[in-house]
Simulated scan of single mutants.
Amino acid sequence: MATEINTSAGWWFFITTLVLLFGGATNVSATPRTPVDENEVLEKLPVSFLGKKDNLSVLQKKLLEQPDNLSLAIVLAKKYIEAGREQSDPRQFGYAQAALRTWWNETQPPNEILLLRATIRQHHHQYDEAVTDLKALLKRQPRHAQAWLTLSVVQQVRGDYAGVRASCASLARVASSWISSLCYSQVMAVTGEAERAYQIQSQLARDPEQNNVELRQWLLTLAGETALMLGKNKSAENHFKKALGLGHRDPYLLRVYSDLLIQQLQPKAVLKLLADEVHDDALLLRLAIAAKHAGKTKIFQQYKSQLEARYRAAQLRGSRLHEREEALFFLQVNKNSDKALELALSNWAIQKELEDTRIVLMSALESKQYQRISSVLYWIKKTKHRMFV
């Protein structure tokens, strides 16, 4: 089964990392298929996940026997979220939701459920519902640092920069200066203060006391993106390489670094970097683009066919999680800029991160339909939104 990537992946990685710190799939086809051989291998699980499978099975069985066991449900849901993040597998978030089913529809669930429910809803682009859960939690616990940070993440995805700053200010009163500075730097980077944001991120990267691998990797990735906004491509590449050198797999990092390599006309480097990442839709798209640029016609056609099948399957499920990546597919793979702009604008109505805005501009430029993006251009000017194209 193909993965369905949450398009706000940069912040999403940060959210799920903190949820866990603080508190290989096969191709999709449009219709189900029954194997003709009982010995057929339907899916090969990633090696890193195999050791967790038995543990998850034990927890699943216990929860079936004790469906009202809140502590057990929370542990199991967190493990599923971790698996979903590590393997870019959306099914795990569905399993996490199922683990919380006893409390999922409650209007006043326990605090931990509110936080996990908001995290899962954010992944599914249910931003209004996620904000409602987070504000309910913060009304009960105004000093809940993780809730303030997660709220700032959702606000950043939606382009609510005033909200982000307010949440970062509240976070600064209850969390470390390292975390709160990181919070501020992300919104500064896209609202006209990229130079200052980059200085903050560079300073945070030199802090020897912050030795959590996942957080340092996320910081280096963010610093790389900010460097790109400033035209510091070499510095950006150095940040991305340092982040990769930490040894923790982060799909978002792989994606933004691949985009830089493609921009620098290094498609063969992308094919090498992402050789084992065909289960991840966003990374498979980069493989297809790189294969096309490298003149690898046969493998390009294979990747293209796989992506088309996955997008069709998503449409059958009524999913909109693919829209930004599908817009890039139509723009750079299928060369249909009109369709790309349609998808990009539909996605932009929901979320307004750097990549969301950039694909709108790229599609409009290619299709020469500038009048359709007047509201986007007004928003960019109003918010002083800064990006790299």
Score class of each variant (00 low, 15 high):
90 P>M: 06
229 M>H: 15
31 T>I: 07
370 Y>R: 11
29 S>E: 11
268 K>D: 04
205 A>F: 04
104 W>I: 10
30 A>R: 12
383 T>R: 08
322 H>S: 10
356 D>S: 14
310 R>W: 07
274 L>F: 00
153 V>A: 14
221 T>N: 12
214 E>S: 12
40 E>N: 04
337 S>F: 12
104 W>L: 03
191 T>M: 02
222 L>S: 01
112 E>L: 09
257 Y>P: 02
351 Q>S: 15
100 L>T: 06
216 R>P: 05
154 V>W: 05
22 F>L: 12
276 D>N: 10
354 L>I: 15
233 N>I: 03
310 R>L: 00
293 H>L: 00
115 L>H: 06
353 E>G: 15
240 F>M: 05
35 P>S: 07
199 Q>P: 01
222 L>E: 00
369 Q>N: 10
1 M>C: 06
3 T>P: 02
21 L>T: 09
97 Q>D: 12
124 H>G: 03
4 E>G: 11
262 I>M: 08
137 L>R: 04
297 T>G: 00
104 W>N: 03
44 K>S: 08
344 A>M: 13
302 Q>K: 01
385 H>L: 14
62 K>V: 13
360 V>G: 02
382 K>M: 14
331 L>D: 02
85 R>P: 05
79 K>R: 12
377 L>M: 05
80 Y>N: 14
236 A>E: 03
86 E>D: 14
387 M>Y: 11
146 Q>N: 06
12 W>G: 12
81 I>A: 10
160 D>C: 13
389 V>F: 13
14 F>L: 11
39 N>G: 14
329 F>P: 00
233 N>W: 07
299 I>E: 00
347 N>T: 10
218 W>D: 04
90 P>R: 02
320 R>T: 14
355 E>D: 13
6 N>D: 14
261 L>F: 09
367 S>L: 01
155 Q>F: 11
220 L>Q: 15
183 C>Y: 05
83 A>V: 08
219 L>D: 06
227 A>P: 09
156 Q>E: 15
82 E>Q: 11
286 R>C: 01
101 R>I: 15
383 T>L: 07
274 L>C: 00
225 E>H: 07
